[in-house]
Write a protein that binds this DNA or RNA. Structure first.
Lengths: 336, 336
DNA sequence: CTGTTAGCGCGTTCAC
DNA sequence: GTGAACGCGCTAACAG
């Protein structure tokens, strides 16, 4: 069909349709009424010549880029990937296209990426997790609206979309307690990570409410990676701690924990019950399938996408409050 | 500092440095000699005013966007995520920034995304897997250079970066044979997927070379998802097939297989040996850790990024030929 | 409703 | 070396 090499501009379709370029611009953007005849003529020319608007010219003239910047953390981490996936889905039918960059959980990198996106004139931005200081976010937010996912910044709470980590961890721990466990170990996430702190607090509170004394020696510091879960168990065992259940701050560490137990010939859940957090895709295929908290990361991303779309359209829209659920699988047993 | 609200342009720094805008443009692009004094004056003004070039104006005037389009398939699949990760890393220190879109393994979506990227005037494109017909790729390649990863298109082979799936599958199967197995089942990937076919062929050839008759009933069709691995085992067992090892076309299916065996009380590797393909991050934490083919997906992505960068710089650079390795872990045992 | 015109910010000829 | 002027393709006031 009409696949010529030379770039065709609105001028050309204006000629072809025998109207002025502004009329063409109007029907293209739909910002103003145009006579039916002219409208059709333009559309016909557009199709005939296979016209494609030049985004640069458009951006330069309008000041809008129709892109939304997304800062993710370390693509290839299941949780953040699911969020990214949700964001992509959320923008599917919107006029905006997301442009994704990776902050790698390194503040310097994040900072640089933020600059990159700002320079690209994104119309809005979604920051997924990460550790950008509030000050930077506030500053950037003056240039372009920002929404934060999976992180709670108190001073910026009106734009933060996150699940209640405290409550979720509380429920996960409570489940173990209800199954009869009283010696429950916890493998926590990175100490400086907000989510990790909240999950630890939820664990602690659940014990407290159940009248079970908190024992510091049952809490082992991890870093969200599988390897740290493995080490945590080694530590626990080496120190001769006694426990019948383990609650991990995320599924990846639970996988490490599972392997360590497996190597020691300790059965799950016969000997030890295990609970994770995140419900990453493969968790349901662990042996046995892992009991975990499902935050619906995809949902999180998707709602962020629609939220910011509405924000840009100035449509009233409440900040979404994503839900989660405790998915009970075979990795937890009732303590006899 | 100089963080004013109003957009500052080269005109302003021209005034500030008391030179003309073209001089500013020159020092910024470095395309022409400029007197040392003026050069410094400009740089000083740039820093003082915290100047940020407008990408749209740049793009409009130069015709270059300094972006590379990336079409991935279904973010949140470990293998493709790792590739995406590699691509991001590869562009880290390059002047280009990648803009990622998701094809979701659906040709219509891929096609739309390809259009989107082309419209955004990307200077180059990386297509990861997917099923875009060659014709479309050829066409797009006339607008902007394209590199294909993890897929082999015969007519376009000079731009395809992929591992030797056939050979890798051959080696994986051979490993099982060398461990004494003769009844080896195979859970294949989607029938229309090129990689799946090659892996099946590698499996078949390895058997043949070892003088082991190929038995169709030991090959079960999967779809790369964990659930299909689980079903495959159920099928095999229900039909009463006899086998001592299973080679899966990817790790995700191997996870499903592992769970199915676990549920039946069949031990790995005591009763059945298991081999996967991809070495996704969590595979090393399965119980027992999975023996698998490690294609170094990250490496794949990274080399594609540098390759296309060089391509755009017109620097001679051979097409990278990514390697892989068989990672032997505890999921395989010698058959007594 | 529609056509004309003036920029948007920057690269790039041109003369000087 | 350096500056002035034009144009990239499109949007957004302007007039009619």
């Amino acid at each position: 069909m009409g696949t010529q090499k030379e770039k065709i501009t609105i001028q050309q379709i204006a000629d072809h349709a025998d109207v002025s370029i502004s009329t063409v611009s109007r029907v293209l953007s739909g910002n103003a009424k145009v006579g039916a005849k002219k409208h059709d003529a333009v559309m016909k020319a557009v199709n005939a010549l296979n016209y494609r608007p030049n985004v640069f010219a458009r951006g330069l003239a309008s000041g809008q880029s129709m892109t939304i910047g997304v800062i993710t953390q370390h693509i290839s981490s299941p949780f953040y990937d699911a969020i990214a996936q949700g964001i992509l889905e959320g923008f599917e039918d919107s006029p905006y296209s997301p442009i994704i960059v990776d902050g790698q959980w390194k503040p310097e990198v994040e900072k640089r990426m933020l600059r990159t996106l700002l320079d690209r004139q994104v119309d809005g931005m979604i920051v997924v997790g990460g550790g950008l200081p509030y000050e930077l976010i506030r500053e950037a937010n003056e240039e372009t609206p920002i929404v934060i996912i999976a992180r709670d910044i108190p001073e910026f709470r009106e734009r933060c979309i996150y699940i209640d980590n405290f409550k979720a961890a509380y429920e996960a721990t409570l489940h173990l307690i209800q199954m009869g466990h009283r010696e429950i170990a916890h493998v926590s996430g990175k100490a400086d990570h907000a989510d990790a702190k909240l999950r630890l607090q939820g664990y602690t509170k659940a014990l407290e409410d159940a009248g079970i004394p908190f024992r510091e020696e049952l809490v082992v510091q991890g870093n969200f990676l599988p390897q740290s879960g493995l080490l945590a168990v080694e530590t626990l065992l080496t120190l001769g701690q006694s426990f019948s259940a383990i609650f991990c701050a995320n599924d990846q560490m639970a996988m490490g924990v599972r392997l360590a137990l497996y190597r020691r010939g300790i059965r799950v859940p016969a000997d030890i019950s295990l609970v994770g957090f995140d419900d990453q895709p493969t968790s349901a295929f662990m042996t046995p399938p892992l009991t975990t908290i499902k935050p619906s990361a995809t949902e999180l991303g998707k709602s962020a996408a629609t939220y910011i779309s509405n924000l840009l359209k100035n449509v009233a829209h409440p900040l979404p409050k994503p839900q989660y659920e405790l998915v009970v699988r075979e990795s937890v047993a009732r303590l006899r």
